[in-house]
Computed example of a mutant assay.
Amino acid sequence: MVFSSLRGYFSMRQQSSKVQALYDHCKTILSPSGSGTAPPSSQALMKLSSILDTIQPADVGLKEETADDDRGLGFFGANALSRVTRWAQPITYVDIHECDSFTMCIFCFPTSSVIPLHDHPGMTVFSKLLYGSLHVKGYDWVEPPCIIESKGPGYGQVRLAKLAVDKVLNALCDTSVLYPKHGNLHCFAAVTPCAMLDILTPPYREEEGRSCTYYHDYPYSAFLAGNAPIRDGEEEEYVWLAELESPSDLYMRQGVYAGPAIQF
């Protein structure tokens, strides 16, 4: 009995050390927004990715969902819910920690759920897929900006963007990184139940000009732009993006972090 208790204690210490190491490294290398200090070195950012690569679902209080769970409920369980109810479940957002420097959070995706196309202005985002499969599609703005004032109903202003990534991520993949000027606009669609651990730096802050904007994408052929820098045959790599006031297909709820405690 004593041996069993000790084994459980050291197991929890091991779990906690991974998340604690992640937090400690973020706190060390990521300065508060607007502090004017030098950005993290490439080595420090590589270490952050390597720490994230080691994180498993159990390290943050999650259990892996299976395809049999359909729309899955992450660590919330489904014993009291019928299959019909489960199909209506939203994406669950879990806030682990937020400060002036960074945000640590988890997104738990039911199968087929979607986070629509959105941006991360001036931000760098590290994403570790903890389990399952997730389709990600990302764009870069074309520079200098190519903008059209559309006269069509419901379009308004549209801006040209180029495809940066279009692939399915699986849980064994390495941490992916989104930069302020590369892949900064992206959308997610869950192929299976899955969960993503994110580090966003600096965090979203509307008062500092970092609010999340959602977009609708239109094929390049939807608008005529004689000055667009497009070569023949490359049209499928480009889209026109129009801002949305609020996405109609985003269904999300707040969850509670159930992993090991972090010493802040």
Rank of each mutant, 00 (worst) to 15 (best):
127 S>Q: 13
87 W>T: 02
78 A>L: 02
53 D>Y: 05
103 T>K: 08
210 R>Y: 11
63 K>I: 09
190 A>M: 09
108 C>W: 01
229 P>G: 12
195 A>E: 04
153 P>S: 12
75 F>T: 00
12 M>G: 06
194 C>P: 10
60 V>S: 03
191 V>R: 09
158 V>K: 08
206 E>A: 15
99 C>A: 07
192 T>W: 04
145 P>G: 04
150 S>D: 02
2 V>G: 01
148 I>K: 10
75 F>K: 01
151 K>E: 12
175 T>F: 03
101 S>I: 02
71 R>A: 05
238 Y>T: 08
189 A>P: 02
97 H>K: 11
121 P>F: 09
77 G>I: 00
142 V>I: 11
170 N>M: 03
123 M>W: 08
206 E>W: 15
261 A>G: 05
263 Q>V: 09
14 Q>T: 08
103 T>E: 05
255 G>W: 00
223 F>V: 09
107 F>N: 00
228 A>S: 15
210 R>F: 12
117 L>H: 03
124 T>S: 15
61 G>I: 02
39 P>I: 09
91 I>L: 07
12 M>C: 03
194 C>Y: 05
76 F>H: 01
186 H>N: 09
122 G>A: 13
119 D>W: 10
31 S>T: 13
81 L>A: 04
195 A>S: 15
151 K>M: 07
145 P>Y: 06
169 L>D: 03
226 G>E: 15
186 H>D: 07
230 I>L: 14
208 E>N: 14
56 Q>A: 15
44 A>L: 10
219 P>C: 14
192 T>R: 07
19 V>P: 02
175 T>D: 02
65 E>R: 12
81 L>C: 03
259 G>W: 00
168 V>L: 08
122 G>Y: 11
32 P>H: 07
201 T>R: 09
70 D>F: 02
12 M>T: 07
258 A>M: 06
67 A>Y: 06
9 Y>C: 04
181 K>H: 13
2 V>N: 03
119 D>K: 10
64 E>K: 13
85 T>I: 03
132 G>I: 09
187 C>D: 07
86 R>G: 00
139 Y>T: 08
18 K>G: 00
160 L>N: 07
80 A>E: 07
101 S>E: 03
85 T>V: 02
113 S>M: 01
18 K>H: 04
28 T>Y: 11
8 G>C: 04
35 S>W: 06
157 Q>A: 12
171 A>P: 05
190 A>N: 11
85 T>P: 00
254 Q>F: 02
181 K>L: 12
16 S>N: 12
110 P>Q: 04
138 G>N: 06
41 S>R: 14
107 F>Y: 08
262 I>Y: 06
226 G>Q: 15
149 E>G: 04
37 T>N: 13
